[in-house]
Amino acid sequence: MSVLVIAEHENGQLKPETAKVVNAAVAIGGDIDVLVAGTNVADVANSAAQIAGVNNVRVADNTAFEHQLAENTAGLIVELAPSYTHILASASTTGKNTLPRVSALLDKSQISEIISVVDADTFKRPIYAGNAIATVKSNEAQKIITVRASAFDTQGEQGACNIEPLSMNISNTLSEFVGIEQTESERPELNAAPVVISGGRGMQNGENFALLNGIADKLGAAIGASRAAVDAGFVPNDMQVGQTGKIVAPDLYIAVGISGAIQHLAGMKDSKVIVAINKDPDAPIFQVADYGLVADLFEVLPELEAAL
């Protein structure tokens, strides 16, 4: 067996998801290569070479891959595909955008968002917003898989392995990059933060989300939101935790003014410790919380900030 892991990177840095996807690759077994596609990605390649278990890092450093357009990256992966039995990417927006295109070009059924590896052909994945876990066996000769990174451990480190430059240049005339508006934040990313504090409809408006800032500062937390808060226009969608937003599994998740709709629970119920603050004692969020506080969030948030 041989596994190709597509590296996840941004602004010249390898993202922590990659070491988790490699962890899934190790569970599958066989030789593991990592593909780094982008521009000015020398640091990314060096970091990837130090993930334990990686044999070879293949680097396509070319402006064609600068913005990770699916049309170009998928073309590159298809070129490299014949050497591999498994192709894995993180179920990030980049992986989700690119890998199904690869799958269809290779005429293979894809398996999305695996949360565990049973054997080299068999995987578990959540369906119905995480209300059920399916065990699926792929009969394809080549498996194309996206990995829910938060469900896997971070692979350890090793002395750097071989780094191989690739000369492929795959461009397309159908799509072009126009721009990116990056969310500016001093805080850790939701997917990687050890602590996440999220606000829901109970926050009442966007300004009140400022009440979470002081607590997030003290805990080194990322700030998230429920879909209800996003739909109400309090905060942007990239803060959304849930089935239709980001799936997180931090050590500590604090849900503030969130009722606990199915689709929100799907995004956070694998957190190690869950705290719920809600004034409605019947809110479903309390059924998954380790510690529940039935109280008015506007009274207790300042108290909590002071107590930390």
Partner: peptide
């Protein structure tokens, strides 16, 4: 091309506790 072998309920979280104060 993909067989569904089994569908199960996700692991249940153990019931937590209600705390009285911050």
């Amino acid at each position: 091309r993909v067989e569904l072998l089994q569908v199960e309920e996700p692991a249940k979280r153990e019931a937590g506790m209600i705390v009285e104060s911050v």
